[in-house]
Simulated assay, not measured.
Amino acid sequence: MILLFLQATNDTAQRAVDTLNRAVQAGAAQPHELRFGDLLLKGGWVMVPIGILAVLGLVIFFERFFTIRKAGLNEVALMSQVKANVSSGKLDSAIAICRNSNSPLGRMLQKGLMRIGRPIKDIESAIENTGRLEVSRLEKNIGILGIVAGIAPMFGFLGTIAGVIKIFYDISQTDNISMGVISGGLYVKMVTSAAGLLVGIVAFVGYNILQMMVDKVILKLETDSVEFIDLLEEPSK
């Protein structure tokens, strides 16, 4: 009887040990889920300036995007009204229309209309100077995107290098050079490099998009200003 009891107890203990081993193996087979938010937090203090650069770049991009897009709207109606009033000799009305348009083209034409009566060269010079000012306003803060594109990856690399230095310092103190210790710390520090590169790439793309938009607006302003000068020269032909 005692032997049967001991055998049953032994079988029960063995089953318990087997169940525990299977649970441990199942847990080891399923790695801990890596969450994006937790991974960012593990990047350390370098993620703070990278995050600031990301927010700064997005704010500048969208602010300039909508400003430049508004400046690049088709001004066919404005040009038609200005032509009609100039042809009719209503310079005051043409100037008022340009002033109310509140657009780069309107300000350029207004400056030219206020110089009517002077040599064409003076009118052209006034329009060109106004155009340069308008282009400078459109390009305002776009250069900051270029700076963000350049320094965000540098911050990322700085965070990675600082992390690697700390890993090897810890190894020198503990003499633990297992692959788990090295890789476990290194993958976390590589997060800063990835974040910096991502912010830099987005800023670089945004910078070039805005530059292309500005170039398109410049071409349009130059075309309209040439058309305006031709209009002023027509009576003298």
Rank of each mutant, 00 (worst) to 15 (best):
G43L: 06
G44M: 00
V46A: 15
M47G: 07
V48C: 01
V48G: 12
L53F: 05
L53C: 08
A54C: 09
L56M: 11
L56V: 10
G57L: 00
L58S: 06
V59P: 04
I60M: 04
F61K: 02
E63L: 11
F65I: 01
I68K: 07
I68A: 06
I68T: 12
I68L: 04
I68R: 01
R69E: 09
R69N: 15
A71R: 08
G72R: 02
G72C: 10
L73K: 11
L73Q: 15
N74G: 10
N74I: 04
A77M: 10
L78G: 02
M79N: 15
N85R: 08
G89F: 08
K90Y: 04
L91G: 06
L91H: 07
S93F: 07
A94P: 14
I95Q: 04
I95H: 05
A96D: 14
A96Q: 09
R99D: 13
R99G: 10
N100D: 15
P104A: 01
L105C: 04
L105G: 10
L105H: 09
M108I: 15
Q110F: 10
Q110H: 10
K111S: 15
M114C: 07
I116K: 03
I116M: 11
G117R: 03
R118F: 12
I120E: 04
I120Y: 03
S125C: 05
S125I: 03
S125G: 02
A126L: 02
A126R: 02
E128W: 01
N129P: 04
N129Q: 13
T130S: 14
L133Y: 14
V135W: 13
S136Q: 14
S136D: 14
L138Q: 02
N141Y: 15
L145K: 05
I147T: 15
I147A: 15
V148K: 05
G150F: 13
I151F: 01
M154G: 03
